[in-house]
Design a protein around this nucleic acid. Sequence first.
DNA 1: CACAGATCGTTATATAATTACAGGAGACGT
DNA 2: ACGTCTCCTGTAATTATATAACGATCTGTG
Lengths: 160, 160
Amino acid sequence: MPPTAFEPHDHSSCVSDGVAAVERHCAEHKLQFTKVRRRVLEILLNQHKAWGAYEILDKLREEGLGSQPPVAYRALDFLVSHGFAHRIERLNAFIACTHFDTHHAPAFLICRSCNRVVEAESDPRAGELGRAAQSAGFVIERTVREAEGLCPACVGRASA
Amino acid sequence: MPPTAFEPHDHSSCVSDGVAAVERHCAEHKLQFTKVRRRVLEILLNQHKAWGAYEILDKLREEGLGSQPPVAYRALDFLVSHGFAHRIERLNAFIACTHFDTHHAPAFLICRSCNRVVEAESDPRAGELGRAAQSAGFVIERTVREAEGLCPACVGRASA
DNA sequence: CACAGATCGTTATATAATTACAGGAGACGT
DNA sequence: ACGTCTCCTGTAATTATATAACGATCTGTG
């Protein structure tokens, strides 16, 4: 499953499918998918970039959905805690989850030029972190794996 | 090379060896290892935990070495940019480098209970990130790999 | 309806980081 | 020694990110 967001794709389905999947999941698990939460998810899905909480808040404010930081942070907390979105530590920003079904430990590729971010599936026990943890007797609960660099399009542009 | 900071060790040598190594490196590369920079490195080396910039600033202030945020941030920038310290994105905090010689892409194990942080050596091209990057044609420039969980001592304490 | 728990609106505050600019100390060529 | 260049320092102000606290309102359920 190669990352797709760096490639042209039918983006409108990213939004509609994402919202639909979360809607379904919330219905099944009796979670309240409220207006603000839905709107924040839509905003996140709207571009494959990481959104700062205050960028989202600005949008909400324009639309009359809330004007104070806790409004945005609460919606983001909800989305993140249920796996509908992820926090990108490197950017202090948030992105919609694109591997929603699988129970995952995500890894991210962040293009510093066009700011697009792609989520890759990963196994938390694999790789350096897992190996180091095992040899140290460390129990991993959560991992942060983020790579910053240039996406294929921007590499081409730079070397051209 | 198993991580050592989770185990008992002669900690005074962590500080003195660390400072000496950086001192040598600065001399060789004509870098100015000024009073503030040295002191910040000592503070970082003093405990195997991640220090917030403002914690460091408080210490500097007590000692009359500076009172405004840029003093701490500038010293930290120097240390990080030359590989003498690392930033832990997950904690918005900084830690002294313990694998100083090797040109590295560090990974970290963060104990959420005792707050100790251990640096593990790693190969940026290995693991999930490298694989994902390669298949996407993404060029990695920098990676963030941080695992949060419980160190051996705290696991024992919790299950006891 | 009445209740409990979740969610929301708002004010205030905490924490983290940067910008901007003036001054100082050392390196270096002349 | 003199200017001058560069890097480093001191400080004020501001921006960015995130949380605390609290009362009001909504939602599902008996």
